Amino acid sequence: MKLEKLESILKRMLDGNITITARSITRLNDSPFKHASDLTRNPDRRNLVETYQARQQELRALIEKTDKSSRTNLQARVARLVKENELLKEELELLVASHKAMLLAVGEMGGMAAWRRFFPTWEETRKRLSQLRALPTAEVTELSGRQK
């Protein structure tokens, strides 16, 4: 009788993904067992509890493997994305620096007219480059002794 009741409790705990231990079984309201030793001293009860514990471990391992949004998979994905983000930031910094140098060189070779030939939509491109801070900056100062 108690073995059947125990099996019923264990099935319910397994279905509800409630961790199966001798102590957790005794805490249930409908449990006929008052102490954990009521389960661990009796070989048949202990074997039944151990069987269900093994099933629960297998089930949890299977769920972990198949669940694409499991905690382990999410942590690995976040770590991969953080690393990828850092790499992209480094690449952006390199491209911005090289772009500034390229614009300075084009400026020396032919100025804005030469640059516009490569970028027909130069105004939109210039706005985007400005947002990325990829345009070289220069401070213009007026010379005081010159006549206009």
Rank of each mutant, 00 (worst) to 15 (best):
E123D: 07
L39A: 06
R117A: 10
R128P: 00
R80W: 03
R80D: 15
K5Y: 09
E4F: 00
L87G: 01
R46T: 01
A22V: 01
N47T: 00
V49H: 10
L3N: 07
E7P: 04
I18K: 08
E123V: 02
E58W: 12
L87R: 13
S8I: 09
R23G: 01
A113C: 04
E139T: 02
Q131E: 08
P136E: 02
Q75P: 08
P120H: 07
A138D: 07
Q56N: 14
P136S: 02
T141Y: 00
L135Q: 01
A79D: 14
L103M: 13
Q147Y: 06
L81F: 06
M109Y: 11
T121F: 05
V82W: 03
M102K: 06
V96K: 12
E64C: 02
R128A: 05
S37E: 11
A113N: 10
A113G: 03
M13C: 13
L135E: 00
T19H: 13
L143W: 10
K100R: 14
R12N: 15
I9W: 06
V49W: 14
D67Y: 01
G145K: 12
A113H: 07
E123L: 07
P120R: 15
L28Q: 11
V140M: 04
E58Q: 12
D30Y: 13
E64D: 15
R46W: 01
S98C: 02
L104E: 11
A105D: 08
A61L: 12
K100E: 10
F118L: 12
E90M: 09
P136D: 04
A36F: 12
A101D: 08
G110K: 11
G16W: 12
T125P: 00
R23S: 05
T40D: 13
R146I: 09
R77H: 09
D38G: 03
M109S: 12
E84Q: 07
E108N: 03
R117K: 15
D44A: 09
K100F: 00
A134S: 03
A113S: 04
R80Y: 15
E50T: 14
F119I: 05
H35F: 10
W115Q: 04
M109N: 13
E4H: 07
A134C: 03
E139P: 00
V49G: 02
K11C: 12
H99F: 15
F118Y: 11
E64L: 13
T66S: 03
D44N: 05
K2R: 13
L103Q: 10
R77V: 07
S69I: 02
A114M: 07
D15F: 10
S37M: 03
A54F: 13
